[in-house]
Amino acid sequence: MTADVHTCTAEDTVEDVGEVMTLRRFRHVPVLTEGRLVGIVSIGDVVKSRLRVLEEDRAQLEAYIHGG
């Protein structure tokens, strides 16, 4: 746990939140809307999102290479 709690909003990108989590070594970041807690992002959520993007990019590249 940390006394220096860093929060994000629903408008923040996954990349931005992931960067903060990596730099500050946080595993969880509270999500606030109008000062109220609406969720928590975990490092697992960030990794899952990044993997999904990489898989989509790979599929698009394969389709381009195979002409489809």
Rank of each mutant, 00 (worst) to 15 (best):
E11Q: 13
V38P: 04
V29P: 00
T33I: 10
R25T: 10
V29M: 15
T22R: 13
D16V: 02
T22D: 09
F26E: 07
L37V: 11
V14T: 04
E34I: 00
I40L: 14
G39I: 11
D12N: 09
D16H: 13
G39W: 03
I40N: 06
V14F: 02
R24G: 00
V14G: 00
L32W: 05
G18R: 02
E34C: 06
H28S: 13
L23C: 05
A10C: 08
G35L: 07
V29C: 11
G18M: 07
T22F: 02
V14Y: 03
E34D: 15
G35H: 09
V31P: 02
V29W: 05
G39E: 09
R24L: 00
H28T: 14
A10G: 09
L37M: 14
V38C: 02
G18I: 08
P30E: 12
E34Y: 00
P30I: 13
D12L: 06
V17A: 05
D16N: 10
T13E: 05
E19D: 14
L37K: 02
V29R: 01
H28I: 11
D16E: 13
H28K: 15
T13H: 03
E19Q: 13
G35Y: 01
M21E: 06
V29L: 13
A10D: 08
E11L: 09
V14H: 01
L37Y: 12
E15A: 10
I40F: 04
F26N: 01
D16A: 14
G18Y: 09
R24Y: 01
V41K: 05
R25C: 06
V38G: 04
R27H: 15
E34A: 11
V17Y: 03
D12H: 10
F26V: 04
I40D: 10
E11R: 12
I40E: 06
V31C: 12
E15H: 07
A10M: 11
R25F: 00
H28P: 12
L37T: 04
V17G: 01
V29N: 09
T33V: 14
T22Y: 03
V41M: 12
V20M: 14
E11P: 04
D12Q: 11
R24H: 03
V38D: 02
V14D: 05
G35I: 01
R36E: 12
V38W: 03
E11W: 05
P30F: 11
A10N: 03
E15S: 10
G35T: 01
V31F: 10
V38Q: 03
H28C: 15
R24E: 01
I40C: 08
A10V: 11
R25D: 15
H28N: 15
V41Q: 04
R27A: 13
L32E: 05
V31A: 10
H28R: 15
V31M: 10
E11Y: 10
R25M: 11
V29E: 04
P30W: 13
F26G: 06
P30Q: 13
G18P: 00
R36A: 11
R36W: 08
R36L: 01
